[in-house]
Computed example of a mutant assay.
Amino acid sequence: MQYLKDDVKNSILQAALSEFKRHGYSNASMRQIANTAGITTGNIYRYFKNKEDLFHELIHPVYEKFVQYIMDIKDDFDHTCTKDTTDPLHYLRKVESTIVELFKESNVELRILLNMSSGSSYEPVKQELIQLAAHILMKVFIPGEDQQDQARIEERNLAHMLAETLVEGTCIILRDHEDGATVRQLVDELLRVYCVGIISKLNI
Score class of each variant (00 low, 15 high):
residue 38 G to I: 02
residue 38 G to K: 05
residue 38 G to N: 07
residue 39 I to W: 02
residue 39 I to D: 04
residue 40 T to D: 13
residue 40 T to P: 00
residue 41 T to C: 07
residue 42 G to W: 01
residue 43 N to R: 13
residue 43 N to Y: 11
residue 43 N to L: 07
residue 44 I to P: 04
residue 45 Y to F: 13
residue 45 Y to P: 06
residue 46 R to K: 13
residue 46 R to G: 05
residue 46 R to Y: 10
residue 46 R to N: 14
residue 47 Y to L: 04
residue 48 F to K: 08
residue 48 F to I: 11
residue 49 K to T: 12
residue 49 K to Q: 14
residue 49 K to P: 02
residue 50 N to L: 01
residue 50 N to Q: 07
residue 51 K to V: 01
residue 51 K to H: 02
residue 51 K to W: 00
residue 51 K to Q: 04
residue 52 E to H: 00
residue 52 E to Q: 06
residue 53 D to R: 00
residue 53 D to Q: 00
residue 54 L to E: 03
residue 54 L to Q: 02
residue 54 L to G: 03
residue 55 F to R: 02
residue 55 F to S: 06
residue 56 H to K: 13
residue 56 H to G: 05
residue 57 E to S: 14
residue 57 E to G: 05
residue 57 E to F: 03
residue 58 L to F: 02
residue 58 L to E: 10
residue 59 I to K: 06
residue 59 I to Q: 05
residue 60 H to Y: 12
residue 60 H to K: 14
residue 60 H to P: 01
residue 60 H to M: 09
residue 61 P to K: 09
residue 61 P to N: 05
residue 61 P to F: 04
residue 62 V to C: 09
residue 63 Y to G: 07
residue 63 Y to F: 13
residue 63 Y to W: 12
residue 63 Y to H: 15
residue 64 E to Y: 02
residue 64 E to L: 13
residue 65 K to Q: 12
residue 65 K to S: 13
residue 65 K to D: 15
residue 65 K to H: 10
residue 66 F to E: 11
residue 66 F to Y: 14
residue 66 F to L: 12
residue 66 F to I: 04
residue 66 F to T: 07
residue 66 F to G: 08
residue 67 V to K: 15
residue 67 V to D: 13
residue 67 V to T: 13
residue 67 V to Q: 15
residue 67 V to E: 15
residue 67 V to P: 08
residue 68 Q to E: 15
residue 68 Q to V: 10
residue 68 Q to L: 12
residue 68 Q to W: 01
residue 68 Q to I: 05
residue 69 Y to L: 14
residue 69 Y to I: 14
residue 69 Y to V: 07
residue 69 Y to A: 15
residue 69 Y to T: 11
residue 70 I to S: 11
residue 71 M to G: 02
residue 71 M to H: 09
residue 71 M to K: 12
residue 71 M to P: 00
residue 72 D to E: 15
residue 72 D to R: 07
residue 72 D to P: 00
residue 72 D to F: 01
residue 72 D to Y: 01
residue 72 D to S: 13
residue 75 D to M: 10
residue 75 D to I: 07
residue 76 D to R: 09
residue 76 D to Y: 02
residue 77 F to P: 03
residue 78 D to P: 02
residue 79 H to Q: 11
residue 80 T to R: 09
residue 80 T to K: 10
residue 81 C to K: 03
residue 81 C to I: 11
residue 82 T to D: 10
residue 84 D to W: 03
residue 85 T to F: 01
residue 86 T to M: 07
residue 87 D to S: 10
residue 87 D to Y: 05
residue 88 P to R: 03
residue 88 P to Q: 08
residue 88 P to F: 01
residue 88 P to D: 02
residue 89 L to G: 04
residue 90 H to C: 08
residue 90 H to D: 14
residue 91 Y to V: 06
residue 91 Y to W: 05
residue 91 Y to M: 04
residue 91 Y to Q: 06
residue 92 L to Q: 04
residue 92 L to H: 05
residue 93 R to H: 06
residue 93 R to D: 13
